[in-house]
Design a protein around this nucleic acid. Structure first.
Length: 540
RNA sequence: GGCGAUGUAGCUCAGGUGGUUAGAGCGGGCGUUUCAUACGCGCUAGGUCGGUGGUUCGAGUCCACCCAUCGCCA
């Protein structure tokens, strides 16, 4: 049974350069998509760029480029960032593409045909510095902009409006019918209380700039950036379109089992309120879930333009490798909560969990015991001769795989990894308690084979369970235990559930440690190379 | 100002519907093995569970108020 899964990141504003926050969203979406593919589900992973707006128009002019040339140039670093991080998206949507523009106009028409769009005068206070309207309550005394502290002007602009006010009730109904529509729950509460206050009609066109999607039949207006941007999720699939005209849209939107939008908490309202309202109006299916993750600080400090501490992912990938960075991002902070990206923490987890835990587990068995005593081959082991210790580890593996899967379904990446490490830890304890090196000396061949097989099979399970987060390292691990790389296949569920998939007789290929430990000198030089202040070295 | 959270060991956090000595990981301390990436394993942390007052035979776990931090809306 095909259960199409569609996962998206926000489209990033192309005016920025990719930083660790973008990477966080994108890696999370990639992990989701890799997990779904492992389970055999048809999966589509979309990311992309928001390339319209006044800011882009201006920047392009400053750089004396046509806006399109400017965004073309700015798009490149995003593409390469996702490649470096092994984020294997299926689609990369750019809002300046012709298909996207058509989709925006198509949605506009559907909303208009519904009678939800009208032209009216919009009059309010306007701050020239902000380039935006302000409500009275946002102003300081004396009609000053709270940000610029300059007087605001009374401006009247003709604009198209969307009858958002008509959707207060339908949205509340939708929320009630879909208690998981927004995650985490606390964020959902915010959304609900915002909507309960009652929604006002939304201005959805601008005449103050040109760099956008022209409004259908009224080219003086450009479509409001958020209506434009949100539409990317369907335009990338060729929608909205009548059935049969856009196969991707049929599969991954209209009849998708699950549609998950991963977003930062700052843009939750647009996704949880405006977007479903637009879709309800257009008569288009609403996504299953909006997942709002938290913000990352960097070494305890907020990333900001003024501090100039935007952390690009590139140098981190160079220093640690994509898999390790992905692991750290998914492991360190609970998805949905704010957290801190700390170089020191990353290295501590690397040494403690990856090197000492998983890496050493593989190494002590594969490169040492199996290689020296079993001719480097996977031994045969009968399920009939299992001892209690073996059964315990197998049970632990089964429980961990089951739990980790549940956590991954729920995008609780940190919990999934936590659970997985319980298995790593149990396996290390198992090796200690069964003492295979002693079995070898004693010539207890059969028992030795059983023990080694049990650990190797555990490693095989781990190579699958960790694959969504660390695809390359997992394939390396598989290589060392004699397994081929994982090849997710539609319709085939590869998630481990039955013990004994590792075939006896195959040759293991011991190689260098998976995660070579950093010594202090290396840590220092990495920190230096990345130009990280080291206030943490409180030695003297 | 309105609404909603959060406040548990040095750090990061778990602790459905109240019930014997409040948990985990990391860090710290002690011990131990030697197969392994000086890795692993075992033991250890005596923390007024933000504060006060209640309900109850019994409360991190329910109620009230207070303090602090944060988020959303204004």
């Amino acid at each position: 049974m095909a259960r199409p899964y569609y996962v998206t990141t926000p489209i990033y504003y192309v005016n920025d350069r990719p930083h660790i926050g973008h990477a966080y969203s994108t890696v999370a979406a990639d992990v989701v998509s890799r997990y779904q593919r492992l389970r055999g589900n048809p999966t589509y992973f979309l990311t992309g760029l928001d390339e319209h707006g006044l800011k882009i128009e201006r920047r392009a002019r400053e750089e004396q480029l046509a806006p399109q040339d400017f965004v073309d140039r700015m798009a490149a670093p995003f593409r390469s960032a996702w490649e470096e991080l092994d984020c294997a998206h299926d689609g990369f949507i750019r809002t300046t593409s012709a298909e996207h523009r058509q989709s925006v106009q198509a949605i506009w028409k559907m909303m208009k045909d519904r009678g939800d769009i009208y032209l009216d005068d919009y009059e309010d206070w306007y701050c020239v510095g902000c380039e935006s309207f302000k409500t009275v309550k946002e102003l300081l005394e004396g009609n000053l902009c709270a940000i610029h502290r300059t007087p605001v002007e009374r401006i009247k602009e003709r604009s198209y409006f969307f009858r958002l006010s008509n959707y207060t009730k339908p949205l509340l109904n939708h929320y009630e019918a879909h208690p998981d529509f927004v995650q985490p729950d606390a964020r959902f509460n915010e959304v609900k209380s915002f909507v309960k206050e009652g929604l006002r009609d939304l201005s959805i066109s601008r005449t103050s700039f040109r760099w956008g999607v022209p409004v259908l039949d009224d080219e003086e207006h450009v479509v409001y950036v958020w209506l434009d941007a949100l539409t990317n999720y369907v335009s990338a699939l060729g929608g909205p379109a009548p059935e049969g005209e856009a196969p991707l849209y049929d599969e991954f939107w209209t009849s998708a089992q699950t549609i998950t939008h991963i977003v930062g908490k700052d843009i939750l309202r647009f996704h949880a309120v405006y977007w479903p309202a637009f879709l309800l109006s257009a008569g288009v299916r609403v996504p299953s879930q909006i997942w709002a993750h938290g913000w990352l600080t960097v070494n305890g400090e907020k990333m900001s333009k003024s501090l100039g501490n935007f952390l690009p992912p590139g140098p981190l990938v160079e220093a640690f490798g994509a898999d390790v960075l992905r692991y750290y991002l998914m492991r360190e902070v609970g998805f949905g909560q704010d957290g801190d990206f700390s170089h020191r923490n990353l290295m501590a987890r690397y040494n403690g969990e990856l090197a000492n835990g998983l890496g050493n587990l593989m190494n002590r068995i594969v490169a040492s015991i199996v290689k020296r005593n079993l001719d480097g081959r996977v031994p045969s082991a009968g399920l009939d001769d299992l001892e209690d210790a073996d059964r315990d580890l197998i049970d632990t593996a089964k429980a961990a795989a089951h739990e980790a899967a549940q956590h991954l379904e729920a995008l609780a990446f940190h919990r999934a990894l936590d659970t997985t490490w319980e298995l790593v830890s149990a396996a290390n304890k198992y090796v200690d308690s069964t003492e295979p090196w002693r079995l070898a000396k004693q010539g207890a061949k059969q028992r030795l084979e059983q023990v080694c097989y049990t650990v190797l099979e555990t490693l095989r399970w781990l190579s699958i369970m960790l694959f969504p987060v660390m695809p390359n390292k997992c394939n390396e691990l598989r290589g060392q235990i004699g397994m081929p790389p994982l090849l997710p296949t539609e319709g085939v569920d590869l998630w481990p559930s039955a013990w004994g998939g590792l075939r006896p007789g195959i040759e293991t290929r011991a190689a260098t440690p998976l995660f070579p430990r950093f010594d202090e000198a290396q840590e220092r030089s990495i920190l230096e190379r990345l130009a990280v202040d080291s206030p943490g070295s409180d030695a003297k």
